[in-house]
Amino acid sequence: MNNKKEKQKNILQKILEILKTMASKPSGLIGLTILVFHVVLAITSPLYVPHDYKAIDPTLMLTPPSSEFWFGTDSLGRDVFTRTILGGRTALTVTFFGSLIALLWGGALGIFCGLVGGKTDDIVMRIIDAFLSIPWILAMLLIVSLLGTTTLVLIPALGFFYGKGIVRVARAATHDVIAKDFIVSARARGHSNFSIIWNEILPNVRDAIMVEGAMRWSWMLLGFSSLSFLGFGVSPPTPDWGLMISNARGLMSFAYWAVLAPIFGLSTLIIGINLTADAFAKALGIDRSTKAPV
């Protein structure tokens, strides 16, 4: 039991150390700050929203920013500020769990293919290649129109489509360690494939996969917002940045505020995640600039 506690303490220490290294550079610090701000905002925003996000008031249609409505109102007279601070909630939740699923299945399949090699690897990778060649948005639209736009459909679907890339990264990372003698040694001892993956390979490829997962998160966020923009993501009246941009873009020439606020929210979040992922990679000793993304 003592051992376990010590281990937990070690892990905690390691995480703190990584965070410290990440924050030691300006880009990492900025990225982390933005990300933390967005996450905190998404969790706590319902507690202090100034207005009701779905209260429609035709008399207040497209009012410019004022002390009452900080970011103005949209075409239905709803408060843009309220909708903006609430608008990241669905996107963040869906994509967070989506990238977690992508990470899990992509990582597991990638490591497995890298380890077993041979025909199994060939067949699986060709299937992955085939999926990679299909524009994801087409396939997503098909799934969404068949099964509906509930989060229970969106999370696994996004997780599946964004996991394909992770398979390739995990497989390549596995190939880096598979030729090392400690794997040969484990094989010669007679360990099972599962034990080799869990004990010998995973600790060595974990970092690469986690960084890739963080990167995929920002891509998925963009993807999810695109879906909402096209009307296949979040259903109204739930506030969502993609949907807000889509609704307000026609009125951009005279009511810029309604489109500017969600754009600001979306772009800062994506930049924040990207900067954090880069800093995370550098803190773990993986330099993404030397490795081309697959």
Partner: peptide, 28 residues
Amino acid sequence: LRAIQLIFQNPDESLNPNHTVEEIISQP
């Protein structure tokens, strides 16, 4: 399998860099 064990040329490659000495020896 137990009766026949291997020792390799380069210990940098034959020891898992992410394992402690304890974990390495606990495997067999």
